[in-house]
Amino acid sequence: MDAALKSHTDAGMTFDATSKTDKAALYKVMVQVGKLEGHKALAAMELPFPNGWALSEGSLSNLRKGQYDAHRAQVIYDWLMQHRFAQAHAADKRLFPETSEQQFQRIVDERAIKGRLRVVTGRSGMGLVEHASQRRDDAVRIKAGQAFWFELELDTPGYAVALQGHQGKWVPFALVDGTEMVAEVRAGVNVLPRMADGVADTLREMTSLGPNQFVFAIAQTRRFSTDIQSLSEGCLSNTCVLHRIATVLDV
């Protein structure tokens, strides 16, 4: 098997570009996705190819049977993964399963509370603070290297963990003394991350340019994990509550 094609199955992916069965299923997905955008079958199959694909009505029979080039199939699969994943997943969950990160993002989109998690930024050289979340921007803008922290307002006490989401990846970060991942939180306004004495332990971001999101998960027990799969299961079983704020990191 071609190494470039084999790597997708070795990495745990469920699509085999050399399999006629998978290619036939992929054809159905591509046609369904194209139909959602008003394209007929031939036009849908050409969407992943900027320079076109010389197809005719006579090609459809072979495409339906999965009788087409493996490299073409891989291009189609990768295009759907990158540009139309939600639609492809809805059409064929076996061929396009959610990763743990994608599942967590969906749960965040569906369930996270907005408006109770705020970013506080330090204005360079002025010795003042600014509640950046009170600006009119949909996402709080933060300058690379600028100090910031969070204020989280809660109705009930509990325990919190926090994650930063950037380009489809989720990374937890410490909330107490730069080492402890779980922070006890109270009813009212909580400063996070914080030192042991309650003073803000400011963050600075230098590399994750562009859109970011920060999510705080709140549970009633200290024994909960920053593992994405565990958090997803906890949120689905209503044992944790999510709070989210979007940011943009500028140079």
Rank of each mutant, 00 (worst) to 15 (best):
G168W: 01
I228N: 02
T207G: 09
G210L: 00
G165L: 04
W170R: 10
G210R: 07
L154H: 13
N212Q: 07
G198P: 05
D227E: 05
L152K: 11
A183T: 10
H166P: 05
H131S: 05
R141L: 00
A132T: 14
V176W: 12
K169W: 04
T207C: 12
A183E: 14
G168T: 04
A144G: 06
S133L: 02
L163D: 04
L231R: 10
E153L: 09
P193I: 09
G125D: 01
G165Y: 06
G158Y: 15
Q213I: 08
G122A: 09
V182G: 11
G165V: 03
G188W: 05
F224R: 03
M126K: 05
S225C: 05
S208D: 07
T221A: 04
A217Y: 14
L203Q: 13
A200L: 03
T156L: 02
T156V: 10
E180C: 06
V120I: 15
H131G: 00
R204G: 00
L163A: 09
V140W: 03
G125H: 15
M195H: 14
Q220W: 01
G210E: 00
E205S: 08
N190V: 11
F173A: 07
G125R: 08
L175G: 04
V129F: 04
L175A: 08
V171N: 10
H166V: 11
V129E: 03
E130M: 03
G145L: 00
G188L: 03
V140K: 09
V171H: 07
M206T: 01
L231P: 04
V120M: 13
V119M: 11
W149R: 11
D137G: 13
G198Q: 12
S230F: 00
R222K: 08
G122D: 06
Q229N: 07
F148L: 09
V176M: 14
E130G: 00
K143R: 06
Q220S: 10
S208L: 00
L175E: 06
Q213N: 13
T221N: 05
I218A: 04
I228S: 07
M181G: 11
Q229R: 14
D177I: 05
F148Q: 10
V119C: 09
L175P: 04
R222W: 08
R136C: 07
Q213H: 12
V119R: 12
S133Q: 08
D155Q: 10
F173R: 12
A132D: 13
